[in-house]
């Protein structure tokens, strides 16, 4: 059984919101475990892990160094080297924050790596604001590998012209100009043609739209989405009310 893309988005989004609102250490760990499990089940663990690591490793390291070593508010000192003081409060702050952020990030990444982007685009109404956001998302995802391979071609073409990139910041910056100028002007020019093409194919028209791709949706899922949305709102409201009261 395959979920409607908006349902998986609602699940991921509300999980991230509720975990942040709850700020509970066991819940964060449970969400992390569930996210990794789900991703393994769906077979997307292989691409997901490096992407998650690229985001989370520097973030968590930075938190640990920052709060583990320097937390002026901390009282119970575990160790001290010069200005650096390891405190219980600092460590627990860092670990809790790291777990909570990891949970939210993983929940959202499981969605991005499992969703079928064309289905997601087709599920959003083509007209108006959502259609335009969907266009930007889909077009960016298509252009990214295209831009990367064009950059590769530009590098080859310039190497073939005898340009050798040398070490050093100034040389790197000069090399940036050599490669960015052809890349950006080609992309901008192509975008100009694409703009005319899309206009001619009715991209800017304001009338009703239809969709060629069928994305099945069930009433039960629609109900589930409403429920998840409400749950997220309630979680946020409860936390704010608690803080205010």
């Amino acid at each position: 059984m395959r979920l409607h893309p908006l349902t998986s988005l609602a699940v991921a989004g509300s999980t991230a919101v509720i975990t942040t609102a709850a700020a509970s250490w066991p819940l964060s760990l449970a969400v992390i475990a569930a996210a990794v499990g789900l991703s393994a089940l769906g077979g997307t663990l292989r691409p997901l892990l490096p992407a998650a690591a690229a985001v989370l490793v520097p973030l968590c390291l930075s938190l640990l160094v920052l709060h583990g070593l320097f937390f002026p508010e901390g009282v119970s000192v575990l160790a001290q080297w010069g200005p650096a003081r390891v405190t219980t409060e600092g460590l627990s702050f860092a670990l809790q924050r790291a777990a909570q952020l990891s949970a939210a990030v993983l929940a959202l990444l499981v969605f991005s790596f499992s969703v079928n982007v064309p289905d997601l685009v087709a599920a959003l109404p083509a007209k108006g604001i959502q259609g335009r956001v969907a266009f930007v998302l889909a077009s960016t995802l298509t252009l990214m590998p295209a831009a990367a391979s064009r950059l590769q071609r530009i590098r080859q073409a310039q190497e073939a012209r005898g340009l050798v990139i040398r070490r050093g910041l100034l040389h790197r910056m000069a090399a940036f100009r050599l490669q960015a100028v052809p890349l950006v002007s080609a992309l901008v020019e192509e975008a100009g043609t694409r703009g005319s093409a899309l206009d001619a194919r009715g991209f800017g028209s304001t009338g009703p739209r239809t969709s060629y791709r069928e994305v099945p949706d069930r009433p039960l899922e629609r109900l589930l989405r409403t429920f998840l949305l409400l749950a997220a709102v309630v979680a946020v409201a409860a936390r704010l009310w608690q803080a205010g009261g």
Binding site: S139, R201, R209
Partner: peptide, 28 residues
């Protein structure tokens, strides 16, 4: 440059062909 005329937001050739019709609200 034919590739720059494509929408870049459709995943199959069939959907790319249909893009203009979708925008005109033609039924499936």
């Amino acid at each position: 440059d034919a590739s720059s005329a494509l929408s870049t937001v459709r995943a199959t050739v069939a959907e790319e062909l249909a893009f203009g019709l979708e925008n005109a609200g033609v039924d499936r």
